[in-house]
Each structure stands twice: as C-alpha cells, then as structure tokens.
C-alpha cells in the first residue's frame, strides 16, 4: 500500500467520523429524530481550517436551531474532531420533504403524524392527515398552532385520540 492511498483513506474516514458524530445529534423538541432524519444535516466538508459541518434551519423561528448547533459542536469535540466548526446554510431552503422515510416512520411511532408532501394549499383547504395511533384517515384540526412551531393539534374521529401533526412546510 502506498502512503498516498492510506492518507486518502484516512481523509475519508475523518469526514465519515464527523458525519456520524453530527448525525447522532437529536432534535431537542422531538428527540426520536436525529438531525440526519430531519434533513437538517446537509454536508460535512474538510478544508484547510478543519472540518466544517453544514446545517440548515427548518422553520424560520425554530428555537431548537441554536441548541442543535451547540450539540453538534459538543458531539464533534467528544469524538476528538478538531478544529471543527458548524456553519448554517440557507440555500436550498429546507422543506418537510427533506424528512427521511425512516424519520417519518419514527414520528408515527412516537405519536406524531408525519407531514404530507410540501406544496401550496388553497387559502382554507385542509390537508388529509391519518391518525398515528389507529391509522384512521378521518381526523380534524383542533388548533393550527401546537406545542412547537412545527406542529398543529388534531383529533382522530375513530379513536377520539388527540395527536400532534407535523405541519407541512
């Protein structure tokens, strides 16, 4: 094996280690989702100044973003990855379509209805949301604004259970 080849392998593995560390960070408000599931973790690049982890904000006013950036820094430090920094990138804008399939399934199991396909709706159109507990498709909106910026509150017409629904964004 040439030294060059070994060095190249090492470079890849540092980036992979950094990705794995960053990907272990969970959303402080929905702790079943990692930032990888959410699509908040965009990329990890290695440059002259060290490792750069790029994350993107979800909702404009999401108060979790600050904590997420801080947790990523801590996760990198625990792995001994230094120098490293966390950078916020805006473009392309995050939408709920960035949520992974695995993430949607985790949400459902956690009792939160995952979002439908992102897109424009009519001014007063309601969206079709299934109950995450019994799967019934007949649910009604109780409140447009729920416990966090990303959720609304709905109720199932079959099992009568109220539940959080991830807003389509």
């Amino acid at each position: 094996m040439s030294d060059r080849f070994n060095k190249a392998r090492q470079v890849v593995s540092l980036r992979e280690r950094a990705w794995a560390a960053a990907a272990s960070v969970v959303d402080p408000e929905i702790p079943v989702l990692t930032i990888e599931d959410l699509g908040v973790l965009r990329e990890v690049v290695e440059g002259e100044g060290g490792v750069e982890v790029r994350i993107t904000p979800t909702y404009s006013g999401c108060p979790a973003m600050g904590v997420i950036a801080w947790e990523v820094e801590a996760a990198l430090a625990r792995e001994g990855i230094a120098p490293a920094r966390v950078v916020t990138v805006l473009s392309p804008a995050w939408t709920t379509d960035w949520l992974s399939e695995a993430g949607r399934e985790k949400l459902r199991e956690y009792g939160i209805a995952p979002p439908g396909k992102a897109g424009r709706r009519a001014l007063f159109g309601d969206e079709a949301v299934s109950c995450p507990r019994c799967g019934c498709g007949e649910t009604v909106l109780l409140a447009e604004f729920g416990s966090t910026a990303c959720k609304s509150l709905r109720q199932c017409q079959a099992c009568r259970e109220p539940f959080d629904a991830f807003k389509c964004h």
Binding site: S60, L90, S91, P92, F124, E144, K167, H169
Partner: peptide, 24 residues
C-alpha cells in the same frame, strides 16, 4: 440572490399560514 430566495421560500409558507389564521 440565493440567500434571499431561501429565506423567502420559508417565509412564504409561514405567511400563507398566517394569512389563513387571520382570515378565519
């Protein structure tokens, strides 16, 4: 401007949500 476009893409969905709430 890519950055402004990205901020707008998010804000648009929020404004639509605000509009619906206020209109109702």
């Amino acid at each position: 401007d890519r950055d402004l476009a990205a901020i707008a893409a998010k804000a648009e969905k929020e404004a639509a949500y605000h509009l619906r709430h206020a209109a109702e």
